[in-house]
């Protein structure tokens, strides 16, 4: 089966800085893939280039066989790729429910949307556990809730591939456990997941497969246990928190 996302030779330069140096990566339908790597290794840039936040300097991205390289963020969202940013974001001045309503209103109608109706904004808030604050302004939410709202926003766009950039950063243990529970359910709803995080314990819980970036290059890719035992990976993380 062909991968849902096929990244080949993807590179990105910021002035003199090479953030991505020709990355090949395939994300398979239905999996939860983890992307790890030290700070500044290009993980966020990888997501930013795939989702159109930045234009790539080279390489290509195929989504379900379609070339989406260099498309605008809104077009990539409509194609079916959801994205939650590393800096938790919401429309701070608007209501929590209104936030999710907005996120669901720009979806390109899918063929299967009538057969399998997507959850309503209210149901999505239930799913992430925020229905009690539906009428609050998003700006007053504590940080953990803001992250969960970000997840609900991305889910409202009906993605078939969801990219999560450090979704557990800043969450306490209870919130992290809740998040893991939610993310694990996503493949069962037809959503493939690719997640970035530093927390290896979290990654071991979530992902059967890991890809490792270092200085903008992929240095390992395979089953989680094998990757974590790889000497090259150990070297990168030497003295780190592995």
């Amino acid at each position: 089966m062909s991968p849902i996302l096929a990244i080949s030779g993807l590179s990105k330069q910021f002035g003199g800085v090479t953030a991505l140096a020709g990355v090949d990566l395939a994300i398979e339908e239905g999996e939860i893939l983890g992307v790890v790597g030290p700070n500044g290794s290009g993980k966020t840039t990888l997501f930013n280039v795939v989702t159109g936040v930045h234009r790539p300097s080279g390489g290509s991205v195929l989504f379900r066989g379609q070339d989406i390289t260099g498309l605008k963020p809104h077009a990539i969202s409509r194609a079916g790729i959801g994205y939650t940013f590393q800096q938790a974001m919401a429309f701070a001045g608007l209501g929590v429910l209104e936030n999710v309503q907005i996120a669901g209103e720009h979806v390109r109608a899918r063929a299967d949307s009538t057969a399998n109706p997507w959850p309503t904004p209210q149901a999505l808030l239930d799913f992430v556990g925020l229905s009690a604050v539906a009428n609050e302004k998003a700006g007053v939410l504590p940080f953990g809730s803001l992250r969960l709202l970000g997840l609900a926003l991305a889910l409202a766009t009906r993605p078939s591939l969801l990219l999560l950039d450090e979704p557990a950063a800043g969450l306490n243990d209870r919130e992290t456990t809740a998040l893991v529970g939610l993310v694990r359910q996503l493949p069962g709803h037809g959503i493939t997941v690719c997640v970035i995080d530093h927390d290896m314990k979290l990654m071991q819980m979530l992902c059967r497969r890991l890809a490792v970036l270092d200085f903008g290059s992929k240095i390992a890719d395979g089953p989680t246990e094998a990757v974590l035992a790889d000497p090259k990976v150990l070297e990168v993380y030497l003295g780190g928190d592995l």
Partner: peptide, 24 residues
Amino acid sequence: SSYGRTLRAIRENEKLAASLGINV
């Protein structure tokens, strides 16, 4: 209207709005 919500989303956060499919 939903159009008004779209405009407010752009006012609040253009980057987020674009990531949710809004042609900012």
